[in-house]
Amino acid sequence: MPFDVLVALATFALVSSVTPGPNNMMLMTSGVNFGFRRTIPHILGIEIGFGLLLLAVGAGLGALIHAVPALSLVMKAASALYLLWLAWKIAFAKAAAARDETGEAKPISLAQAALFQVVNPKAWAMALVAMGAYVSDDMPVLSVAIVTAAFLVVGIPSAAIWTGFGVALRGFLADPKRLRIFNIVMGLLLVATLWPMLR
């Protein structure tokens, strides 16, 4: 891959990974409610799930979705329903410390975060654009691997930044009223991430 194309890919990967979206909204919320250490499986799950999604799109899944419009519509509907459910859960979540001993409050697990990428509209948009723009017909396997690696390299720091934002807000949000307002706002912002998909 030529150096200028690699720089463009790295820039696209960084900008698309660090800008707001469902993953980043949930990471910040998890940072507030559970802290950084308990959010690490969530971060790793996003990276694993998105890496696998990139590889699947690079292997031809993206072409199948473009070829079968009904499949795209089903995926959009599933994404919208799942994001609305997550937004509801986030909006009415309480801090882990505020829960009782039943252990009800738990951060998203590695497997849940990985599986979420299947219905994450921003992840699909990023994967389809990246594979469409940066995969070379001359070296398809190598360029798919390079695109995937570029996203993984910038993904963990981007996820850590959003989780860190949440952790930084923990003291301010120790007040249950402020935490409730924050969680409701984050739930609404998660719903707002559906807008680009529905246009």
Rank of each mutant, 00 (worst) to 15 (best):
F3T: 11
V5E: 03
L6F: 11
L6T: 15
L14D: 08
L14G: 12
V15M: 15
T19P: 02
P20S: 13
P20R: 01
P20W: 04
P22M: 09
N24D: 10
M25P: 02
L27F: 09
L27S: 09
T29V: 08
N33P: 09
G35Q: 11
F36N: 05
F36H: 08
F36L: 13
R38Q: 04
T39D: 10
P41G: 07
P41Q: 05
P41S: 07
G45M: 10
G45K: 14
E47C: 06
E47T: 07
G49Q: 05
G49H: 06
F50E: 10
F50W: 14
L54D: 13
L54Q: 14
L55A: 12
L55M: 10
A56Q: 12
A59H: 11
G60D: 07
L61A: 09
L61P: 09
G62K: 06
L64D: 12
I65E: 12
A67S: 14
A67C: 12
S72G: 13
S72Q: 08
L73E: 09
V74Y: 13
V74C: 15
A77F: 13
A77C: 08
L81H: 14
Y82D: 07
L83C: 04
L86D: 02
I90A: 01
A95G: 10
A95F: 02
A98N: 07
R99G: 15
E101I: 08
T102W: 08
T102M: 00
G103K: 06
E104G: 14
E104P: 09
K106I: 04
I108F: 13
A111G: 08
F116G: 04
Q117P: 04
V118W: 06
P121Y: 05
K122T: 14
A125T: 07
M126Q: 09
V129R: 07
V129I: 15
A130D: 08
M131D: 11
M131H: 10
A133K: 08
Y134C: 15
D138Y: 09
V147G: 12
T148M: 02
A150V: 09
V153P: 03
V154C: 09
G155M: 07
I156L: 07
A160V: 07
I161S: 04
G164H: 04
V167P: 00
L169Y: 02
L169E: 05
A174D: 15
D175G: 02
D175P: 02
P176L: 04
K177T: 15
R180L: 05
F182G: 07
N183W: 01
M186R: 03
G187R: 02
L188A: 11
V191N: 09
V191L: 08
V191S: 06
L194N: 01
L194A: 10
L194H: 00
P196T: 00
